[in-house]
């Protein structure tokens, strides 16, 4: 449990951090995914760039109907934010069930999204809420829609020279996140987020496939509305057509079943 030796940088600004980025360097925020991997020697970067103390990255504010969240905002800050709870409760609920109190007080939203663990909680909420991930690189900044961000297992649309600076979450009318946690890791075996905004409902899953995904089949089946029957019919289509993860704790059949159950629970919460 001893990592390979590495250099350590603590830049004072985002620009300074971008300058330090290289193929051999990793960004360190809360460290709750990266450091365990390094201790197991599954990851051995030559340098860590600690952005955890860059003050300009830690905030939650309202910005014209959108909630803007700085990248190093912790899960605990998001879970306990009235602003997030009132406008994007799926995100607050997801933040509140990540790991344990120690993890929630250190882990950050930017770090979690960049890491893109297939069983992480945020991605489902981010997709269902239609958030945008704001990034900055050596060539300037851009904003990536959530639908384009999660690509595959631990793989995102983030370029190697880019840093997530902000997550922009449009206010939803109603939203919810429910999960079936793995009893050891507390990661999502299945997590489902549902959000309604302006009459449209979005449903997204985490833990089910290699990357979190919007479930277009469930969404399409919801044209009948959020009646009990409508929800049951839509939830029954959960994860249809998806290549579903399978492991010792939850094989494919059981995971598909849980996806249906948790789709129903999430939709019932926003009905």
């Amino acid at each position: 449990m001893i990592p390979v030796a590495f250099d350590y940088h603590r830049p004072a600004s985002v620009d300074e951090a971008i300058e330090l980025l290289s193929d051999d360097a990793k960004l360190l925020a809360g460290g709750h995914s990266l450091l365990p991997a390094m201790k197991l020697r599954l990851s051995s970067p030559g340098a860590l760039i600690d952005i955890g103390r860059i003050a300009e990255l830690n905030y939650i504010r309202e910005d014209g109907g959108t909630i803007a969240i700085g990248a190093t905002t912790t899960h605990q800050q998001i879970a306990s934010s009235d602003l997030v709870s009132a406008n994007a409760s799926a995100l607050a609920q997801a933040a509140s069930v990540i790991g344990d109190p120690q993890v929630r007080n250190k882990g950050t939203i930017g770090g979690s999204l960049a890491h893109a663990d297939p069983a992480a909680d945020y991605p489902a909420a981010i997709l269902a809420l239609g958030a945008e991930i704001v990034v900055r690189g050596s060539d300037g900044g851009r904003s990536i829609p959530a639908d384009e961000f999660f690509i595959d297992l631990f793989l995102t649309a983030l370029a190697p020279d880019e840093i997530i600076t902000e997550v922009r979450v449009p206010a939803a009318d109603k939203s919810a996140y429910v999960k079936f946690p793995h009893p050891a890791s507390r990661f999502a075996v299945v997590g489902c987020a549902a959000a309604s905004a302006g009459g449209a409902v979005k449903v997204a899953f985490t833990g089910v496939a290699n990357a979190a995904f919007r479930d277009s089949g469930v969404e399409a089946a919801l044209s009948g509305g959020l009646s009990e029957e409508g929800i049951a019919a839509a939830a029954a289509r959960a994860a249809d057509g998806q290549e579903v993860l399978a492991d010792h704790f939850a094989g494919e059949e059981y995971r598909r079943h849980l996806a249906k159950v948790f789709a129903r629970k999430a939709l019932a919460t926003i009905a």
């Binding site: 009893p183 050891a184 890791s185 990661f187 010792h248 704790f249």
Partner: peptide, 27 residues
């Protein structure tokens, strides 16, 4: 909860607290 799981080649799959489930107070 608890179970030491080996695959057919003899690798211990439940070799960390990510997979090996210990009971917790809230269980």
């Amino acid at each position: 909860f608890e179970e030491a799981v080996y695959d057919d080649s003899g690798q211990l799959i439940s070799g960390s607290y990510m997979d090996y489930v210990l009971p917790r107070a809230d269980d």
